[in-house]
Design a protein around this nucleic acid. Sequence first.
DNA 1: GTACGATTTAAACAAACGTTTGAATCAGGA
DNA 2: TCCTGATTCAAACGTTTGTTTAAATCGTAC
Lengths: 215, 215
Amino acid sequence: MGTQETKERILDAAERLFAEQGFAGTSMRAITTAAGANLAAVNYHFGSKESLIDAVFTRRIRPINEERLEWLDRLEAEGDPSVEQIVEAFLAPPLRVSQDPVEGQSLLHVAQMIGHATSRPDSRIKEMLVHQFDTIIERFTRALSRQLPEVNHAQLLWRFLFMVGSMAHTMAISKDIKGYTRGLCDPNDVDGLIDAMVPFVAAGFRAPVPVGDSK
Amino acid sequence: MGTQETKERILDAAERLFAEQGFAGTSMRAITTAAGANLAAVNYHFGSKESLIDAVFTRRIRPINEERLEWLDRLEAEGDPSVEQIVEAFLAPPLRVSQDPVEGQSLLHVAQMIGHATSRPDSRIKEMLVHQFDTIIERFTRALSRQLPEVNHAQLLWRFLFMVGSMAHTMAISKDIKGYTRGLCDPNDVDGLIDAMVPFVAAGFRAPVPVGDSK
DNA sequence: GTACGATTTAAACAAACGTTTGAATCAGGA
DNA sequence: TCCTGATTCAAACGTTTGTTTAAATCGTAC
């Protein structure tokens, strides 16, 4: 049959190149060459480079956000979840999806791409992100607020932002973490990374609110 | 005389445009037009666009890192600083330098630019960052390790990375924070931002290390 | 005033970019 | 076999990119 074989190859190649070289740094020619397709294939299948970026991004972020919500649903069905559990439900899905089940090693392409996208100057992607994360932010801040009644809403949003920052930045530079830390930190050990990140973020959420900011 | 007047104007314009549109998204023509200079001025004064990026970045990051080290020196001269104090010495300088003393409001161009730079795919800037932060990382991790003897070195590096991520990401998207948080968080209130960020990060540093990671 | 290095200017450069075109090729049903 | 729609292909499109060039202009010391 060959159901959209070229389309899939383009998405895979674009995802890898976007992760490695960023969106602006990746040309249509580089994508189609890596995908073994003709230059015009992207415009034929996706319409434009911008639409391709959307497609590459949405293909990954939607399942990630669905898994986040399912994870949180499961936790709340079992009782009232701890801050650590809520944080893990937010952080683990995007990190786990980066593990290549075929190669065994973690390529982290998805993670790097998401990291780049979150700090992109382009406003179009920003709007997409805001929309994609609308439900996520509401559900997770509400769950966290239940466990942290002494943290007002503004402070909770700040801390949520700091968590996203820790995650996104770690993802974005994951390829170079070994260089930064002289090999001491291994970004391919996803479970170890989650085990390091969850306590850090959870403790941050539990921190006493600054004085003079009572609400 | 006109001591390098054009050169300064180009640096200012480039900094603003880099912050607003990223490095790849800003053309030489946009920079020189905004600076009121001729197109060839950048190549004449800086050699190339890449060198201009270096110049724009270095002009800001060097004083920031110097202030970080001076701040830490001062703290250590007064006694042994708390985690909160060390964290503040790292976070405050890049956030404060963003405040425009003339306009009164915080334009945060520097912060945004730094945020973009830290998640840049380009390896050249990465090397520059690693080199610029070499001393910083060593001094600050050593100071933190003295207050946190139960946190092993690998975990400390992870947490340092998470701190940088929170900072860089907040800087990168500072322009859109009000949109993300429906106006509840104001990135122009730099003191309030620091007051929110320092307790979060400090609590993260103090968090108990994950089990099975004793070293 | 004249000469000279520093700077600015307009113009053009080659290269790379995303996109479009129209013919060639493919697959499957009538 | 022929037809039809989907896909692929090589080629070219018009822009935009960063950079270079050579002449024009400026500022200053002689």
